[in-house]
Each structure stands twice: as structure tokens, then as C-alpha cells.
């Protein structure tokens, strides 16, 4: 069961490495969105510090969602997705592999970039650390949940906007606990409880989301 998982991840990473340009679009989107807020709000450092956790988190959430639109579409177009459904491997395991590879390519860069953006907002070192930790736990959960939406909207016209409509409400708990962890740390309350909740959400979505995604993919290929 682990071998096909490894190979799916390896396959998708190889493909991602051969089309590196795609990787950066997500990251650049994240940077731009987060950098737009001070321009809309004003450069007042105290205000910016207060809203920073929410802004960085919303930026990461939107970037991750936009990247997700691509997760199954290429495989759907070239027929490798239908072949995946016809292998003797459990589809949900292959789905986990695809999501993991996708997260490594589009999610991890966000986690790494976040502290740099946090500096723009005057966040202190320990807050930046919690920001990274929360994104490290939160973005894979976003990928897992979002994959369901990506599978449901596969091959539909206006798929991107529809994906946002389906997925964003489901992202709310991750956003609340993710941004909450950073904020609680910034205000001196400690983000431990929030991070535990995020971890719980991650585990729950790791168990449930691939099943729903696999079912949705079967429907999409019907």
C-alpha cells in the first residue's frame, strides 16, 4: 500500500520539477495578496501588527485554494486519472499521494515564505514561529479539504469560481484556529490550544477527506 503511494508522490514531484514555473505562481500570488493589504489599510504599524495573523492566513488560504484547481485537472485531461481509478490500489491511498505531492509543491513554499511576509507586518520572532507552525499544520488540512471540492468540480465550466464557493465555507475552522493561534501568541495567551485543534482537524481530514475525494473522482469520471 505504501509503495504506490511513494510512486504517485514521486511521479507528481518529477512532473512538478519539469514545469517549475507553475510552482512559483502560487507563491507570487500569496506574496502579492498579503502585500496589498497595507496599501488598502495604511502603514500604521500597530494596526498592521494586529491584523497580520488574519491577513497572512487568508492569503495562504486563497493561494492554496487557487493552486488546488490544478490538482486533478491535468490527470483528468490526459486520461491518467481514469487509469488511477482502475488500478488494484485503493483510490483513496492514491489520492493521499496526489494531495501530499501537491502540498509539498504548493503548500510548503507558503509556509517558508510566511515569516518573511510576517516581517513586513512587524511580527516578533516567537509569533513568526507560531505562524509557521500553524501554517505547517493548517495548509495540509486545506489541501485535503480542498481536494474534495477540486474533485467535485472537475471538468465543469466555471470550475474555479465554483470551487471557491464550495470550499471556502469548509475552510473556516482551519482559518479560525490557524489565525487564532498566531493571534493568541501575539497577545500573550499562548497558541497551544489552537495548535492542538489544528492538529486534530488535520488528522480528521487526513482520514475522511481522501474517501470523499475518491468518491467524487469516481463520479467525475463516470
Amino acid at each position: 500500500m505504501l509503495e504506490p503511494l511513494y510512486w504517485i508522490i514521486r511521479r507528481d514531484l518529477t512532473i512538478a520539477m519539469r514545469r517549475r514555473a507553475d510552482v512559483f505562481t502560487t507563491l507570487i500570488f500569496f506574496v502579492i495578496v498579503v502585500s496589498l493589504f497595507p496599501l488598502g489599510i495604511g502603514p500604521e504599524p500597530e494596526t498592521l501588527r494586529q491584523i497580520a495573523p488574519g491577513i497572512v492566513w487568508v492569503g495562504a488560504l486563497l493561494a492554496s485554494m487557487l493552486a488546488l484547481e490544478q490538482i486533478f485537472s491535468a490527470d483528468h485531461r490526459d486520461g491518467t486519472l481514469e487509469q488511477m481509478l482502475l488500478t488494484p490500489q485503493p483510490v483513496s491511498v492514491l489520492v493521499v499521494g496526489k494531495i501530499l505531492a501537491h502540498w509539498l509543491v504548493s503548500g510548503v513554499p507558503l509556509v517558508i515564505m510566511a515569516p518573511v511576509l510576517g516581517l513586513q507586518y512587524n511580527l516578533s520572532a516567537d509569533v513568526l514561529l507560531v505562524l509557521m507552525a500553524s501554517l505547517l499544520l493548517g495548509t495540509p488540512a486545506l489541501s485535503l479539504i480542498g481536494a474534495i471540492g477540486a474533485a467535485l468540480t472537475l471538468g465543469l465550466r466555471s470550475g474555479g469560481v465554483l470551487l471557491a464557493l464550495l470550499v471556502l465555507p469548509l475552510y473556516i475552522p482551519v482559518l479560525i484556529f490557524g489565525a487564532g493561534a498566531v493571534e493568541a501568541t501575539a497577545s500573550g495567551l499562548g497558541g497551544q490550544a489552537h495548535l492542538s485543534m489544528l492538529a486534530a482537524i488535520l488528522v480528521a481530514s487526513l482520514v475522511l477527506a481522501p474517501l470523499a475525494t475518491a468518491a467524487a473522482l469516481r463520479v467525475a469520471e463516470d
Binding site: L170, I172, P173, I176, G180, M197
Partner: peptide, 10 residues
């Protein structure tokens, strides 16, 4: 339920 709980917490 998760959404409801998290909103409550928030």
C-alpha cells in the same frame, strides 16, 4: 458541527 464549534470558540 466543526464549523459551529469553531465559530463559537472564535
Amino acid at each position: 458541527p466543526i464549523i459551529y464549534y469553531s465559530v463559537q470558540w472564535w
